[in-house]
Amino acid sequence: MRGNELLTIGELAARTGIAVSAVRFYEGKGIVHPIRTSGNQRRFLRSDIRRISFALIAQQLGLTLPQIAEELGKLPEGRTPTSADWARISRGIRKRIEVQIAQLQRTLDDLDGCIGCGCLSLKKCALYNPDDRAARNGAGPRFILVSRKVALGLD
């Protein structure tokens, strides 16, 4: 196959290791954008192999499909992205992952300080909530949810 040929949906599925139905799913989510032939058949650019591969990897990293589509929307359409294009996206994803790691570390620290502390004293407990004062801020584990919002820069 020459570098400028378009791929059928079956060829794209085979090259990415996913089912044809998954290619359609990713199309519906805005991950890939096929070209339609005069017979209304889907044809894909070879660069769509990387777009789907990126989506598969990004999902493993915890990105949602809308986040993945947003990141891929930053790439040029109609040409294979360059290493500079991918590096730009990588920097943004790296920041997201670093925030997630920091949140996970805080959660581990809270977990060790709570379940593993053995203090058996509500006077020392970091999560102690006398008279349910945290309920003023909403339902659920407010101390944890608020620290998560702060870590994600949402507060």
Rank of each mutant, 00 (worst) to 15 (best):
R2I: 08
L6Y: 13
L7I: 05
T8G: 14
G10A: 10
G10N: 07
G10R: 10
G10T: 06
L12M: 09
G17Q: 07
I18D: 00
A19P: 00
A19R: 12
A22Q: 10
R24C: 02
R24E: 01
F25E: 01
K29C: 06
R36P: 03
G39N: 04
S47W: 07
S47E: 15
D48E: 03
I49P: 10
R51L: 15
L63D: 11
T64N: 02
L65V: 06
P66F: 08
Q67F: 05
I68V: 14
A69Y: 03
G73D: 10
G73C: 11
G73F: 12
L75S: 08
P76C: 06
G78T: 06
T82E: 04
A87H: 13
I89M: 15
S90H: 15
S90V: 00
K95P: 01
V99A: 15
I101D: 10
A102K: 14
A102F: 06
L104W: 07
T107M: 14
T107D: 05
D109Q: 08
D110K: 00
D110E: 01
C114S: 14
I115R: 13
G116A: 11
C117Y: 02
L120H: 11
S121V: 01
L122H: 11
L127G: 04
R136N: 01
G138H: 05
G140H: 05
L145V: 08
V146E: 15
V146W: 02
G153P: 06
G153H: 05
